[in-house]
Structure formats: structure tokens, C-alpha cells
Simulated assay, not measured.
Amino acid sequence: MANLKDDERLDFLLAENLRIIQSPSVFAFSLDAVLLARFVYVPIQKGNLIDLCSGNGVIPLFLSTRTKGQITGVEIQERLYDMAIRSIEYNGLQDRLHMIHGDIKEMPKQLGYGKFDVVTCNPPYFLTSSKDEVNPNEHLAIARHEILCTLEDAIKASSQLVKQGGKVAFVHRPGRLLDIITLMRQYRLEPKRIQFVYPKKGKEANTLLVEAIKDGSPDLKISPPLFVYDEDDQYTPEIRAILYGE
């Protein structure tokens, strides 16, 4: 039995045959997290992986089905960290998945520099220019806006945590592409693979996936585009395969 609190619910991660604790008022993962967990290269047999800005632990849970390595999640909000811990316990993954309640900016000092083979991050997307633009729900505001963590904070921490030759993968908005590439190169992360995700054909891309290598040589590949919905507003076969394993 899951130990649920308040308005929490136990949802299926269908393709992975796992369950996750979510809350409509605190946090529920989006497609972006699923796409990042599928996009990033991971060593299958072993390795040391870390996910920054983990929320309720969705990316560590997804990654657990793709690698037998050790996975650490970092989340600054205690309520979300608590949800992640309970989800990991519910799925019996405590031997491989570990959560840290803390600030990603402190993780290199706390965990050590160059310790990880892979770093993933689904950071807050939106710059915080005025109080009026921020979600009044504190949990959602922190998850979505650069209040406690900026894009530069996330990229700098990722670079410090990853081994030389290790991989760092982010999901973000296409409008920040130049910021991401500029900051990655500033912190010795060379972008190697980019994929744009589109709501449907004929629409502008609304999601960006990027993978970089620490001190890698310049050679950027653009993956084929990914479309979420077809002309009938149903999930495309590619998205159905990611979500449901079909």
C-alpha cells in the first residue's frame, strides 16, 4: 500500500510498469520529463547517474528501467522530495535510487566533482520578471520559474558533477536554445545532439532536448523531429510507444 497524503494519488508509469505518487496541487510530471528520460544516453549495465530538479522523482524512476546503475535525484522542495522517497519505496527500488533533499548548487561540494557518468535536468523554464507572472502556488512556482535555480546554476552544477567525457542532458524550451548552448560551452559542455519536439505537424516546436559531452569535440547532430499529436489530436505512434510501450 502507498502512504498517500492530502490530495495525492498513485499513478501508473505505463510503459515502465511502475507507479508514482502525484498531487494536482503540488506537482505532477509532464511529458517533458518522460521525453528527457528516453532521450538521454545511459549506460545499461552500470554507472552513476544523477537527476537535478527531480520533482517527485519521475526521471529517476523512468531511468531505472533503462540502466542497472545507481541513480541519485536532487530536489529542493521537501514536499516533492517526500513524494519521491515514497514512490521509490513503493516500487522497491531503494537499492538503486536515492533522493537528496537539497540545493543543486551545493551538490558538487556535497557529492564530489566529476563523480557522475550522466546528469539529467528538467529545470524551471521561465524567467521571473515580476510577481504577477509567477504561479501563486509556491510548489508550482518554484518548479516552473527561476526562483531558486537559474539555467546557469543548473548547467554549472551539471558540468561540475559530470565526469570528463560524461553526458549531460536537458529538456527546455526552444526559445532558450542559444542561452543553453552559450552556457554549456562556457562550462565545458559541448552540445552533441539536439531534438525538437512539436505539438503536431505545422506547429512551432515547443520543447527542446539537448545532450552534451564534458570536454567533447564540436560535432552537433540534429535528431529527427518528434511530433506529439497527429491530425486527429491523438498521440502519434512514437509518443504512444514512449508512454505506453506500444
Rank of each mutant, 00 (worst) to 15 (best):
D7W: 09
E8A: 14
R9C: 05
R9W: 14
L10R: 11
L10K: 13
D11A: 14
E16M: 01
R19N: 02
I20H: 00
S23M: 02
S23K: 06
S23A: 07
S23P: 06
P24R: 00
F27W: 10
A28K: 05
A28Y: 13
F29Q: 00
D32T: 14
D32S: 15
A33T: 00
A33H: 00
A37Q: 01
V40H: 10
V42F: 08
I44G: 13
I44S: 13
K46N: 06
L52Y: 06
N56F: 08
N56S: 12
N56G: 05
I59R: 02
I59F: 15
L63M: 12
T65F: 15
K68F: 08
K68M: 09
Q70W: 09
I71P: 00
E75D: 05
E78A: 01
D82L: 03
A84H: 11
A84N: 01
R86K: 11
S87T: 11
L93S: 05
D95Q: 02
D95R: 02
M99G: 04
I100M: 02
I100Y: 01
H101V: 03
H101L: 05
K105C: 12
E106C: 09
M107Q: 13
M107L: 11
P108N: 12
K109D: 12
K109I: 13
L111H: 08
K115T: 03
V118C: 02
V118S: 02
V119A: 10
N122A: 13
P123R: 04
P124G: 13
L127R: 15
L127E: 10
T128M: 10
S129K: 13
S130K: 15
S130F: 15
S130P: 12
D132R: 12
N135H: 12
P136F: 11
E138C: 10
I142D: 14
I142S: 04
A143T: 09
A143V: 10
R144M: 06
T150H: 03
K156V: 09
S158R: 01
S159H: 04
K163Q: 07
G166Q: 08
G166M: 05
V168K: 06
A169M: 01
F170A: 05
V171R: 03
P174S: 11
P174R: 02
G175H: 07
R176H: 08
L177T: 15
L178I: 10
D179T: 00
I180W: 00
Q186M: 04
Y187L: 08
L189G: 00
K192P: 12
I194S: 01
Q195S: 01
Q195I: 02
K203Q: 04
N206M: 13
L209A: 00
E211T: 05
A212S: 15
A212V: 14
A212K: 04
I213A: 13
S217K: 14
S217Q: 15
P218C: 07
P218Q: 15
D219G: 07
S223Y: 03
P224M: 01
Y229K: 04
D233Q: 12
Q234W: 14
Q234G: 09
Y235I: 09
P237R: 15
P237L: 07
I239G: 02
I242K: 05
E246R: 15
